[in-house]
């Protein structure tokens, strides 16, 4: 049975579609967040370490790293997505679907995370680095084993904050054929004048964001020992 009536919700029809959309969204968001989060942490450490007064202070290196972040971040995601299509095809083999969306999402997540990490590390107490260095720690050890754990709570909260941005990107990606909740809301809600479908998609997104924030808060509290 096909339902075309406006403002209606039938589980038989929309249920499987919604389930698939949620699956696609989670696949895109989590992949981008995990890969982008890890590479972004490394990138952010690079930014922090090459800043003036940093352990690897280098005006040149910082300039390049910072410029790349500033280059990518202001581009509206829908344009970025299309602009990097050749690279997307080269890496994922396709310019359509969930896989194709993950590549540009990950790139944007890396640069966003990099700034986030840089900011959080700058506000951490540099005294711990000096203490670690004074005990004979290598620069990398002082950064990774001492400074990052010290800044872990704000970093986790930053990742939770980032979740919303990545979810937003996945919806945009959905509009150009990557599926997910964004595509679900546009195709079955907006295009068919069925507001109920749109609202369901919105409700699911809200629940996902709340869950992500709760998880972030819980983890941050657990690593913050004060």
């Amino acid at each position: 049975m096909i339902v075309h009536a406006t403002n209606e919700w039938t589980w038989d029809y929309y249920g499987p579609l919604l389930r698939q959309a949620i699956g696609e969204t989670l696949q895109m968001v989590l992949t981008a967040l995990v890969i982008g989060g890890i590479l972004g942490l490394v990138y952010g450490l690079g930014l922090y370490a090459t800043r003036r007064g940093g352990l690897y202070q280098s005006r040149w290196a910082y300039g390049v790293l910072s410029f790349v972040v500033n280059l990518i971040r202001p581009i509206p995601f829908i344009i970025f997505l299309t602009a990097v299509r050749p690279a997307t095809i080269a890496i994922t083999g396709t310019s359509l679907g969930v896989k194709a969306a993950i590549f540009p999402m990950t790139v944007v997540t890396i640069v966003a995370t990099a700034r986030l990490v840089e900011q959080n590390l700058v506000s951490a107490d540099p005294g711990v680095i000096e203490a670690a260095r004074a005990m004979g720690a290598s620069k990398v050890n002082a950064l990774v084993r001492v400074l990052v754990p010290e800044a872990l709570a704000p970093l986790i909260l930053g990742y939770a904050f980032l979740f919303v941005g990545v979810l937003d990107m996945s919806a945009v990606a959905g509009a150009v054929g990557a599926g997910g909740l964004g595509n679900f809301a546009i195709s079955y809600g907006y295009n068919r004048y069925n507001d109920v479908v749109t609202w369901v998609a919105v409700a699911v997104i809200i629940v996902l964001v709340q869950l992500a924030q709760m998880l972030g808060n819980t983890l941050a509290r657990r690593v913050l020992h004060r």
């Binding site: 107490d125 000096e130 004074a134 754990p149 010290e150 020992h225």
Partner: peptide, 19 residues
Amino acid sequence: RELRANIGMVFQQFNLFGA
């Protein structure tokens, strides 16, 4: 690094690792 392992240092703000 070898030298520093043989020289202890304490700081005004302690610089303990809070985590």
